[in-house]
Structures are given as C-alpha cells and as structure tokens.
Write a protein that binds this DNA or RNA. Structure first.
Length: 804
RNA sequence: GGGAGUUUAGCUCAGUUGGCUAGAGCAUCUGCCUUACAAGCAGAGGGUCAUAGGUUCGAGUCCUAUAACUCUCACCA
C-alpha cells in the first residue's frame, strides 16, 4: 500500500542508495543487446555547478534512461575534467597564491587535493539528482591512465606529421602568462581612443597622417602600408617615414588588405599589434619586433618606457606625442577586443616556441564532418560549420603552465632534436624521467619539455578515455564511434570541434553519430549564470532540497533543446502538481488492484478506448525521444495522463466500486485496463521522474512483473496496430460527458446533479449504446435517447434534483 | 560586416510534412468539499500569430522585404 502523502525526501534517498548498492545501471559489456553509448561531458572542475549544467545533464540522463527502457545496453560513463588552466585559476584563487610562487610539485599537489574536494561535491549532487551514470568508476583527465592516452595521441599525431613545434605568432595572455587557442577567446567592448599621428616623410617637413589605437606600439613599427589602388598616396612607396617620437625610419609598402576608408587610409604595421599584422608579417617577410614581455611589460625597445605595463605605456606615449605636437586629434571609440575567456585580459600576439596541431590545412575534412554528423537540433550544425570556415589559427596545444598532462618528449642537449617517449613507457613526466635510449646523434643528455598540454588536447579524447574504463583498450577502442555526444552550445567550437579533429586525424572516423545540444539557463533577468558567481538560493543543491530531484528533472525536461531559457520557478510548481497527481491517481487505481494479477477478459469499449489511446501515445512518445525531443515526449505523455485521470478514471470508477451493480466482468475489464495503462504510464514517466515511479512500481508491480527496478523493466508495448475508430468513438463519448459537465457548470449546478434525460445525436449510436452504463454513471443521467446524425450534438433534458 | 535564432493570450511557452473553430500552464473570473487528489475538479473570458507584400483552393506554418531583441563569428590599423 502506498502512503497517504508522498514524502520525496525519504523516498528519493532510499532509491538512490538502492540503485547504487545494487548496481542497477551497470553496463554489461558481454551482453549482446544493442548498445547505446554516450560520451558524457566531464564537468570542468573549477567551481560550483549551476542550474545550467544540471539541466544539460538531466537531458543526457533522460536520454540514457530512455534507451535503457527500450531494452538497449546503455554505456553511460562519467568523468571529471580536472586539469588545465580553469582548474589552476580556481585553485590560485582559493589559496590566494599564484602558481609560480611555489615549486611546481607543491602546486600540483594542492590542485589534486582541491579538485578531489570539489569532485566529492559534484558526485554527491549527481547522486541526489538521480543520475544513472556509472558513479562507481569515473575517469579523471589528470589520472595516469588518461595521461597515457593523451600522450599516445600526441605521439601518433607527431608520427603522422600533424603536430609541429614552431616559433610562430601565438595568442598570448599576459595575465595567465601562457599561450592560448582561438577557441579560448571572448570579446569585450572596450572604450579606447583612435589617435591620428604625424609620420614625417624622411628628409622633409611634410607629414602623412596615420591613425592607431595602440600608440605604445610605435616602438615596434616595421613598416607603413597603403592600398595599391590608393592613388593619392602612391608617391609614398619610394619614401621612408619617420616614426613619431621614437624617430626611426620605416619603409612604405602596399597591400590590398588596407582599407582606404578607415582612419587616414594609411596604416602602421607592428609585429604584432593584431591579427592582420600576423598576415602581413608572413606575406611581406617583415622583421619581428617584440614590444612587450610575457607578463605584459614594455621591453627595452620602448626606451624610456621599458617596464611600463601596456596600458600605462599607452597613456605615457600619448602624453609625449601631445608635448611634441605629433598628435593631430583623438577620437573616442568603443571597439570589440579579443580577451582571454579565463581572465578577461585583452589578448596579445607574441612570438613563442609552441606546439601546434595543424587544423588550417584540413578545413575541408573538418567541414565535411559537420555535414556528416546528426545535429539535434539541426540548426546547431551551422554554428560548427561557421566556426570551421572562420578558423584562422592552428590549434596551439602547449601551455606555459603547471597542472596539466606533460608532453612525452625531450630535446637533445647537443643537436636539439625531439626525442619521443616509447608507447610502452607512457605515461611519462619528462621533467622527472630521462629517455632510455640515446639521441640519433649519440648524445645521452636531454632536456625535458616543461610546457604542459592544454586541457582540450586531452579532453578531445573522451570517447577513448571513457570507453577505456570499460574495455581497458586505452587509445584504440572498439566502442568508438559512440552514439551520442551531448553538450551545451558553447562547446561546439571547443570540445566538439577538437574531438572531431582528433578522431579524424587518428582513426579517420567520426567520434560519434549524434550530437544533442542543450541551451543555456540564464538568470531570470537574462544574464549568464557562471560557475564563479555563487547565487545560492537557486543552487542545484537548494533547488533539489526544496522541490525534489524529480521536480527538478521535470523542469529541465521541459526546456527546448538548444534554446536559452530564463530561469523561473513556475515550472517547478507544475512539476509538484504532476508528482502529486501521479501519486494520488496511482494510489486510487491501485486500491482496486490489491492482489490482482492481470488476466484477459472480454473488454468494455471504454477500456478498449484507453488502451488504443495508450498505443498511440506510446508511438508518439518513443518517436519523440528517439529524436531527443524530450519536452515534446513529456508533453504528449502528460496530456494522456491528465485525460486518463479526469476522464477515464472518472468514467470507470463506478464499475470498479460496484461490481454488484455494473457486473463482475465489467469490473474485471476496468481492472485490466487500469493495471496496464498505469504500469505503462509509470514506465514512460520513469526516465524523467525516476524516484516516484520506482516507489510505486516497487510497491505494487515489481512482484507481478518479476523485476528488481522499473528502470530495467523495459517499456510496455501492447501492440503496433491502432484501431483509430475506437479512439474516435471514445473521444465522442468524452465530448458528450464534457457537454453535460459544461451545462451543469454554466447553470451553477453540482456535478452530482441528476438530469432526467439527454439526447445524443451522432454517427456512433451503437457505440454509445454499448457504453451506456458508463455514460449514465459519470453524467448522473437517468435516461439516454439516441438519434443517428452526421452532426454531433447533445441535448440536455430536465434537471431532477441534487440527490437521487 | 558574415551566420544563426526569436517575435503566437496579461505572463511563460507548445504548435511536426501548409488542412476543420490557433493550444497548454500560470494569472483572472464563475461554480463544485463528486466514495483518489481543494496541492483537487468542472467551466468561462482573453489572440489582426511582429509589420508589409507574395505563392496557394487554403498560411502561425512556405517565399521576399522591413523592424525589434538575442546569440555567434569576424573586424579591431
């Protein structure tokens, strides 16, 4: 028997423990059933989880449970992305010290401790949300077995010539003091000044106007460009110009990229002030002049400004230019500047020795991969394609940081050649170990690479890393391609792109077949949620405490895939109502089904009707979920469920209560339909509401059905052929009942009020006659008359009394 | 500047490949304590589907343009 009230706090905890202890969701790799494999996103361990993350994971969860209920063998692994810059910054902030202030090993150990603490919190939250992933064994992107896979990937790319080491212009963060990748850029709107400067033509008193937002880089000017079609400035090509204030001379060159409309139509080129400078440096083989150091201070090139921070230098130079009358005018402008996503510092371009994975020469293949994958929703494909089209930097994977997977390489002290580690020795730390064999040149002394790999260089291998947990096959894996990669849309250009890249490069195949892209959950005012912002009242922990895991899952399941949503508590109240209704309806129906075992009887028409409608719902529901349309599936199910409660149960309850009046068989027929429809509905609700459905199932169905959990019991499919005519006729009966109810409502009568007679005009007289006892009962009508007609109509007779 | 999305009831949103009178929840109003549920039930009111054209027997849905908002990429001299 079910309790009178549903107590989610006790019930949810009870089943979470039960599932965990009994390995209900364990993946059985020996099983020959159809597999469904999920490349679960490992959360970045750099702060607290917010409702956005949680909702995205709930989508994955529902899909995993759906496939499990379809009878598939679901591989739903779990892991953490717990190394790299995001984690380092989290730890630096927490301990209020910078990594470079201590020995590398000390910092790495603190990182390991701090991530462990956060991971325990994450783990607890996932359990409390009712997640059916494998919580017992999870991967970590810094664990030795992961490092091994990551290092092997590097060696494979090296051997294939797809990764190279070069001194090249690199996106550089002066705050984090590391190189970064194009995908790590954000943009910020910054107020700045556009400064019009006098560049004197060498040996004359004539000057030409050049506009720049970065006067501090005047010390690094290598040339001045004009457009080859710029007639009025053609004469400059043979001349030299004097760089204002700094006084040295630079040549004038022509290039089509110069926009004649912008500024003065003449532009100075530094190496490097922005991305166009990078192009020009390569094309015109310009010298490289470093104006600032790794930590963002001016170099000796800046003369008296050496040691100034970039922004300070800019101000100081402008003052000097004013003093010397070299500044013609200043326009205040607001422009978009690329910044580092982790710290918001404007990105500089610097020349450094870095490791790059070549992506620019494989754009076509990468683009094609986007076309070959199934994107849900479809529009997300465009974001990927757009990103690939706009790629302008190769993927820089080296970071001048500390807590990351090391490169498995050394440089020969004598000849400088790269020495790779042996695959069987992985993982290696080149700072602690030495190669086992000498260099080709005979030298036995090596310098280990001190850079570490970017975290994406590793997490782009999650298909290999996660399946390795189950197969122990490491880098090579038979379970790839996986079925599903789920993530939010911000990760398309990052994690998805990199994973596709690696999979194509290593194995010439796609890493998965489907992508399910979730939207963002925004604050109620439309601003972004962030892990770093801690708005606690809406923290996942509090929401689950207040509303239950099932209600939280209901909320997330109602979000449209791929679409951003402002957070609101309204859906939570709807979820609460649904839970309450499921509980009450089940309790009521089951009160008639104690010790009942279903047996086939001749069915009453309204019982056939609800079963046919169930079949129709079942098809719509599974079809929608197969296409990752969680909200649509849930919607159909809710509509059916409410109809089941408010119409079907109301219609049959008299038969259930009074077999003596309505007949023994008629009562058995209602029990049969109630048993299977309720069971079927609970199974369909189970992916979204795993706790309450388990509670009811285990209380009342498990024994009959011979199952240890609803979640591995499979959906209830009672047939493919749907009798549409019964559905239509039964719907007409409901329509008739509605009209009688409407009549009573409009006349402010109680629904109990008896009506002397009604006249039903319809095409379905025989059907109405067959269900006459049901209709009479639910409508409190004493007599029904019938008229054959194409037009449906219900005429309502005299009101008798409130009691009879 | 390129690309994508959104615009439907007071609010939050559904609306499949064009097809009967455009749906749901919340809110509002009216009734009803009906042998599961008042955290419930039965009803009612509320919409020029952003705007303007077009295709069609028929358009919320398809096409063109416009507007507003959002996201994304790029520009950043």
């Amino acid at each position: 028997m079910l309790e009178k009230k549903y107590n989610f706090k006790d019930v949810e905890k009870k089943w979470q423990d039960y599932w965990y202890e009994n390995d209900i969701y364990k993946f059985d790799k020996e099983n020959s059933k159809k597999r469904y494999t999920i490349d679960t996103p490992p959360p970045t361990v750099n702060g607290k989880i917010h409702m956005g993350h949680l909702s995205s994971y709930i989508h994955i969860e529902v899909i995993a449970r759906h496939h499990r209920m379809k009878g598939e063998n679901v591989y739903f692994p779990f892991g953490f992305d717990d190394n790299g810059l995001p984690t380092e910054r989290y730890v630096e902030k927490k301990i209020n010290k910078k990594a470079y202030m201590m020995p590398r090993e000390t910092f790495v150990n603190i990182c390991l401790e701090e991530t462990k603490k956060l991971e325990d919190e994450f783990f607890d939250l996932y359990k409390r949300a009712g997640f059916s992933c494998n919580l017992k064994e999870h991967y970590s992107s810094i664990a030795p077995r992961t490092q091994k896979i990551s290092q092997q990937s590097f060696i494979d790319l090296y051997n294939k010539g797809l990764v190279y080491h070069a001194e090249a212009p690199t996106l550089w963060c002066t705050e984090c003091q590391t190189a970064c990748a194009q995908s790590e850029l954000d943009s910020a709107s910054i107020e700045s000044t556009f400064n019009y400067l006098k560049f004197f033509i060498s040996g004359t008193n004539e000057y030409i106007t050049v506009a720049t937002t970065r006067p501090e880089m005047l010390c690094g000017v290598v040339c001045v460009f004009i457009n080859p079609n710029d007639e009025k400035n053609q004469h400059l090509l043979s001349k030299k110009l004097v760089v204002p204030y700094f006084g040295y001379e630079v040549p004038v060159l022509a290039d089509e990229l110069v926009d004649m409309e912008k500024g003065s139509g003449v532009v100075m080129c530094c190496t490097f002030g922005d991305t166009v400078d990078k192009e020009w440096q390569r094309k015109h083989k310009l010298p490289i002049k470093k104006c600032f150091t790794d930590n963002g201070r001016m170099t000796s090139l800046a003369g008296e400004f050496e040691g100034f921070k970039i922004i300070e230098a800019r101000k100081a130079v402008i003052e000097k230019l004013k003093e010397k009358d070299l500044l013609i005018k200043q326009d205040v402008i607001t422009h978009e500047v690329s910044t580092h996503e982790r710290c918001g510092t404007p990105i500089e371009i610097s020349v450094k020795n870095q490791w790059f994975i070549d992506v620019l020469s494989h754009k076509d293949e990468l683009y094609q991969a986007g076309l070959d994958l199934n994107w849900y929703p479809k529009t997300m494909r465009a974001r990927y394609l757009n990103w690939v089209e706009n790629l302008s930097w190769n993927w820089c994977i080296s970071r001048q940081r500390y807590f990351g997977v090391p490169f498995p390489i050394w440089y020969c002290k004598k000849c400088g050649k790269v020495k790779l580690a042996n695959i069987e020795d992985l993982p290696v730390d080149p700072l602690k170990e030495q190669p086992k064999t000498p260099c080709e040149c005979g030298c036995t002394e090596f310098i280990g690479e001190s850079d570490v790999m970017d975290t994406w260089a590793t997490s782009s291998l999650t298909p290999q890393i996660s399946t390795d947990l189950c197969t122990n096959k490491g880098f090579d894996d038979e379970m790839v391609p996986m079925n599903l990669r789920p993530n939010a849309h911000d990760n398309i250009r990052v994690w998805d792109f990199y994973t596709i890249t690696k999979s194509l490069y290593h194995f010439k195949k796609l890493p998965w077949t489907d992508l399910m892209i979730s939207g963002y959950v925004l604050s109620s005012d439309g601003s972004k949620l962030a892990k770093s912002k801690n708005n606690s009242s809406n923290s996942p922990q509090n929401i689950i405490d207040n509303y239950s895991a099932d209600v939280t899952r209901y909320w997330a399941s109602n979000l449209t895939l791929g679409k951003d949503t402002n957070f609101s508590l309204v859906e939570f109240d709807n979820g609460k109502k649904l839970i309450n209704k499921i509980w009450n309806a089940s309790k009521f129906v089951l009160s008639f089904l104690e010790n009942y075992t279903p047996k086939q009887v001749e069915l009453e028409m309204m019982d056939k009707w609800i079963l046919e409608k169930y079949k129709s719902l079942y098809q719509k529901f599974t079809k929608a979920l197969d296409k990752y349309e969680i909200a649509l599936a849930l919607n159909e199910l809710e509509k059916f469920f409410w109809n089941f409660c408010d119409n079907y149960i109301e219609i049959v309850k008299r038969r259930l209560y009074n077999p003596d009046i309505y007949g023994e068989r008629q009562c058995e027929s209602a029990k049969y339909a109630c048993y299977y429809v309720l069971l079927g509905i609970l199974k369909m609700f189970s992916p979204v509401l795993p706790h309450i459905t388990e509670e009811i199932f285990m209380d009342s169905f498990a024994k009959n059905e011979g199952q240890k959990s609803i979640h591995v019991s499979g959906y209830l499919n009672i047939g493919e052929d749907i009798d549409e005519s019964i559905i239509k006729m039964g719907d007409a009966v409901v329509d008739c009942v509605s009209q009688v109810r409407q009549f009573k409502s409009l006349n402010k009568l109680s629904l109990k009020t008896f009506i002397k007679d009604i006249v039903v005009s319809s095409k379905y007289t025989n059907f109405f006659k067959a269900v006459e006892p049901d209709v009479k009962g639910v409508c409190s009508v004493n007599e029904i008359k019938y008229v054959d007609s194409d037009n449906f109509n219900v005429e309502i007779g005299e009101v008798i009394s409130e009691e009879n």
